[in-house]
Deep mutational scan, measured.
Amino acid sequence: GTVKVQGITIKVPNPDKAYKIAKKLAKKYNLTVTRKGNTIKVE
């Protein structure tokens, strides 16, 4: 899958794990995490 952070896309082998990490970071930096299948977008 991929993770998008402010325009940066990161390929990740485990979208579930990445999503959990993204959620933690999002809370810390007051961002929104959206997930569509293997693509995770943080904005």
Rank of each mutant, 00 (worst) to 15 (best):
G1F: 12
G1L: 12
G1R: 06
G1P: 07
T2N: 06
V3A: 05
V3S: 04
V3D: 04
V3K: 05
K4Q: 13
K4C: 15
V5K: 06
Q6A: 14
Q6T: 10
I8W: 09
I8Y: 07
I8G: 02
I8V: 09
T9L: 11
T9G: 04
T9D: 04
T9Q: 07
T9I: 13
K11F: 14
K11P: 09
K11E: 09
V12K: 02
V12T: 05
P13K: 13
P13W: 14
N14E: 04
N14S: 09
N14F: 12
N14P: 15
N14T: 04
P15Q: 03
P15C: 15
P15R: 08
D16T: 09
D16S: 08
D16M: 12
D16N: 10
D16C: 14
K17W: 14
K17Y: 13
A18S: 02
A18V: 10
A18P: 00
Y19W: 13
K20Q: 11
K20C: 14
A22R: 03
K23V: 12
K23G: 03
K23F: 08
K24S: 11
L25S: 00
L25W: 13
L25H: 01
L25T: 00
L25R: 01
L25E: 00
L25V: 03
L25I: 07
A26W: 10
A26C: 13
K27L: 09
K27A: 10
K27V: 06
K28C: 15
K28H: 08
K28Q: 08
Y29M: 05
N30Q: 08
L31H: 03
T32F: 09
T32N: 08
V33A: 03
V33F: 03
T34E: 04
T34S: 08
R35G: 02
K36D: 12
G37N: 05
G37K: 05
G37I: 03
G37S: 04
N38G: 05
N38C: 14
N38Q: 06
T39A: 08
T39K: 05
T39R: 06
I40P: 03
I40S: 02
K41P: 00
V42I: 14
E43D: 06
E43Q: 12
E43Y: 14
E43C: 15
